[in-house]
Design a protein around this nucleic acid. Sequence first.
DNA 1: TAACTTTGTCCAACATATAGACAAACAAAA
DNA 2: TTTTGTTTGTCTATATGTTGGACAAAGTTA
Lengths: 393, 393
Amino acid sequence: MSRTWNQYIVKQENKALVLKTIIEHTPISRAKVAQVTGLNKGTVSSLVSELIDEHFVMESGPGESSGGRRPVMLLFNQAAGYTIALDLGVGYIDAALTDLNGEIMVKKHAKMHERQFDTVFEHIVSTIHTLMKEMKKSPYGLVGIGMGVPGVVNHEGEILLAPNLNWKNIQLKQALNDVFDVPVIVENEANAAAYGEMRFGFKTPPKHMLYLSVGMGIGMGMVLDQKLYTGLNGFAGEMGHITIVKDGINCRCGNAGCFERYASEQALLEQAIKRGLVTGNEEASVDLLIQKATENNEAVIALFKEIGEYIAIGITTMINLFNPEQILIGNQLSKLQPWIKEDIQAYVYSHAIGFHSKKVTVDFTSPNHLSTIKGMASFTIENFLLSIKQTEE
Amino acid sequence: MSRTWNQYIVKQENKALVLKTIIEHTPISRAKVAQVTGLNKGTVSSLVSELIDEHFVMESGPGESSGGRRPVMLLFNQAAGYTIALDLGVGYIDAALTDLNGEIMVKKHAKMHERQFDTVFEHIVSTIHTLMKEMKKSPYGLVGIGMGVPGVVNHEGEILLAPNLNWKNIQLKQALNDVFDVPVIVENEANAAAYGEMRFGFKTPPKHMLYLSVGMGIGMGMVLDQKLYTGLNGFAGEMGHITIVKDGINCRCGNAGCFERYASEQALLEQAIKRGLVTGNEEASVDLLIQKATENNEAVIALFKEIGEYIAIGITTMINLFNPEQILIGNQLSKLQPWIKEDIQAYVYSHAIGFHSKKVTVDFTSPNHLSTIKGMASFTIENFLLSIKQTEE
DNA sequence: TAACTTTGTCCAACATATAGACAAACAAAA
DNA sequence: TTTTGTTTGTCTATATGTTGGACAAAGTTA
């Protein structure tokens, strides 16, 4: 049975439209909402009063008059509920309690070198419990938990493979749902970051955006038409394993010449060691190399530029395939920005097909942007608002 | 002003749903439509009677009884209007008159070695006029013209670059609109073929499908969520110019190591000549080489397999990036299928990330499938039905 | 102070989907 | 044949929700 259209649906859609308008323009008057949406004033009034009853909207005293009766300003009640979003990284766990606007209320950061799933899971659960205690009384309470992970996640929230954690076939969503009775969303870290940046990183969100996560491995999050694209099973964006050098270096994936064998954090560190840029008693790390580069270590800077060129090749491929509006480079290697940004932009400019006619921007975003956290919060919030709409039908 | 929802919209949407159901299930009774859509029988009755008034639907005598009153069968009136779809190839022009179901009524094929735009355009116009004369009297007449071209087309129907025709910045849509007073759609050939195959090539259309057009150049049509994806400006799918061999053969695009320098018809012919597989008085062509391969010419077969391996690398990239349900290889080099299909499938199977968990099928489609024509017809028909809906609002 | 503006509510009019009754047309069992 | 039950499609009453306009309240401006 397909979706039919009747009065109930019309009402739910209009109500969602009104709420969306209030969220985007908060604070705003009923009259303005009617003007912006094109709905009749009366319709807006009645829908708003329902939204107030449901605690999604609040009235906040009178606003400025524009030559007539002063408007009653409406606010989105971002405190009507909370989400908990987590970013499970390699070596750390970030977590945050957010309101319904995705604004971070409380933040937690923990180093985590243990990789055994049971141990990590225990830590996750206790972190969530801690954050839950920080919630103030609210009409809807915790509306969802979102979790970004560095691995391949299917549409059922199962982690099929997380090479850098050494995890395989972990039913993470199921495990969390066994403990917490709220909707749980598990998504790939790059996908979440892509969405988070699209939603919160721009004045006007780009139509098509690609986020290249260059960490230990390389992943790509694709936001096409402002919606996350994940492919048939959820595995889209395996950018790290496209071939850019035929018959190149072998990759553990079974392929050879994979992008991430040349452009990732791992590739960077391997090369640094191989070239003797790290002395015996130093531990190879991005930060260490950056320090050396800052001290004008020519060899390190040259290595950065080499890695940068490979990244540029990947970016060019992305542009040629997707004709996006925006490309964002994130995760660890975005820290190399000062040494590679100009070169990458120059390379892309001269190598992408018909670049001049395209209006693509290539930028960097820093790891402390919390893109993944924000993206996961967005997913849970949108999922919650959608579920409200549907249960009312 | 955003889109609001009211009774008019509800009615138009439901009417569209009823029409879609009739098109997909033709012949079908009103009762069945109600059952399939979930709409009330009365609602279906009144909408159907409007559709009949508008000549989109016809009644065709009584159907088989299933133990009660015999149903009145409804047919989609595919003869309510016509479209003309063209496939502008390198060296030929295909054209067809189709009904509103996209079924081809009249077909024209013409060799065309002249590349001067004015000459080609004249030929196009006269072909369209010829086909228009074949139309029978119908309520809506010609509802649109669709044209697939081997080049980069923007959203305004302008051909920015068609290297194999040596065209640049041609306002094709505008030129056609100056002559014909119907909606004109111009689209890249691979995009059209992708859509055409998705719509007509499967029992159940795949959710995400990629069509790799391997001709003189290489283009990719992307149908994601059963909708054509063309990127910000319409330039998405420039698969021919992604780098698969770093510092490889130079390409006229300014890049080096481009996919189409290794896997296209052009690459094939160049190599054949270079290796002396074509004698002085023969003209190098795909068909000639196929003939030699059929005669068990080992060197030619080896060349085919080499080209096949490069194609496989490209396909693997596509799978890793998009996690599609279906991949289709089309255009000239699909003729190499007998020599390369198995190798490609084996390569993809062993090189694509987590292949086993993915349900992707890699197939070939022959050039005489008229995929491009059918895709362009689909575009014009859908555009027409949409415009009807909107003008009624 | 009077006249005009803006805001938000209320109410009648209208459009359209739904449920259910009903008649027509048929098949199968008695 | 007759009867019974089923399926189809139409019709009517009802419910719902939007629209447009009237109107009061609360401002501003001349």
